[in-house]
Design a protein around this nucleic acid. Structure first.
Lengths: 208, 208
DNA sequence: GTTCACGCCGAACGCTCGTTCGACACCCGG
DNA sequence: CCGGGTGTCGAACGAGCGTTCGGCGTGAAC
């Protein structure tokens, strides 16, 4: 149906506008009246497309996560070398993040705003996404020798490196996403100066 | 005055309770009535200690940042070796984070909730804290050879590794903060498997 | 014994919130 | 020409919000 198509396109535009406002002001600070103003629809008109403000946030998060998952699976498909698989994973994540900054900030920053069924469904995608990365890390260890640190720490730390960028990265600035992605990859795999950190250099840890 | 002391102690307790609730539910979802219930004071009684909800958040953030700054300066004072200075910086950050999880989550997650004078004052501390880390990284490069990546990327990426922990780390779990801190230090300096990432391993970056 | 600042409170104010409801144009199949 | 689904809207509802205000008890100061 052409109507169905037009309807979906309007919903997409609405979600995009909402993601922009949520990213700038935050989910709970943003009122439905703000969204109406920003998207050019009346307040009550919004409720023709979504059942509630919660569902609006859910749709943004769920669709973004689905997209980044699909994009990631395509990016690593057929790639055998574990290190290259990792590089593809990182690059896909940052590339998608940089080109969908609003949605990804909402996904990262407002992860605690959902509850119930909505939360479960997004968390299921999150778990799958995390599992893929952990499997890649296991493969990297198998081919490149024992890791220097616990795999769980490495996983969440890498996500921290990547997801934190909504706090400082400007996709329109002078720092290209290619350089960023390559830097994160190098940093994670080889470290800042490639230094094997001995015990002796950290003699008084947690002393202060 | 003893009264002044008692007053300050009550304010501290109030801020601590507020930080706990803000960390769990988020700043904007939390009502002053929630805080009154949680801290055992009446709704209007809160306003004897703080001028507004904004100021409450500001006091939590500003005091926490001041504490982590002071603690960091003490931790790196007198330490000459740049790599060890970095290790102390990281360890102090994570140690303070883990032992003040609520306050630090509020500081990290609700950084956009302030505005005006309040925001400026917290941001000033943030800039100073960042500058110290960047200076340490410059020293590390001077003594340990050229860095593998841009220093600004390295700085914000390291903050991402450290600040993201409020999303997954449980200080009461089986993962000690000593291990965490050492892992982040190793990961940042030497990488996951100590691999010098060549260009050839990432031939199709941003292709997918 | 009176005074007065301190610590705290119940009640209320004005406002904004998410959501609902009834209605009105429009267009397409009959 | 007509009936019904589609898309949109203004107006309103009840609830909850941050904040204020006047007052009350208490204990130290004089």
């Amino acid at each position: 149906m052409a109507q169905q198509l037009a309807h979906d396109e309007k919903l997409d535009a609405l979600l995009a506008a909402a993601a922009r406002v949520f990213a700038k002001r935050g989910y709970h600070e943003t009122s439905m009246r703000d969204l109406a103003r920003e998207s050019g629809v009346s307040l009550s008109g919004l409720y023709y497309y979504v059942k509630s403000k919660d569902e609006l946030l859910f749709l943004i998060q769920d669709r973004s996560f689905a997209a980044v998952l699909a994009s990631m699976e395509e990016a690593i498909a057929g790639v055998e070398n574990p290190v290259e698989r990792l590089a593809r994973f990182i690059d896909n994540h940052l590339d998608y993040f940089a080109s969908h900054m609003a949605e990804m900030k909402v996904l990262s920053h407002e992860s605690g705003a959902l509850s119930g069924q909505f939360l479960s469904q997004v968390n299921a995608k999150k778990r799958e996404y995390t599992r893929v990365l952990m499997d890649i890390l296991a493969d990297v260890e198998r081919t490149n020798g024992a890791a220097h640190v616990n795999r769980r720490i490495a996983t969440y730390t890498l996500f921290g490196m990547m997801n934190w960028i909504y706090n400082w990265y400007d996709p329109l600035g002078d720092l290209s996403v290619e350089v960023l992605s390559q830097s994160v990859c190098r940093l994670f795999l080889g470290g800042y100066v490639g230094l094997p950190v001995s015990e002796s250099v950290m003699p008084h840890m947690t002393a202060g």
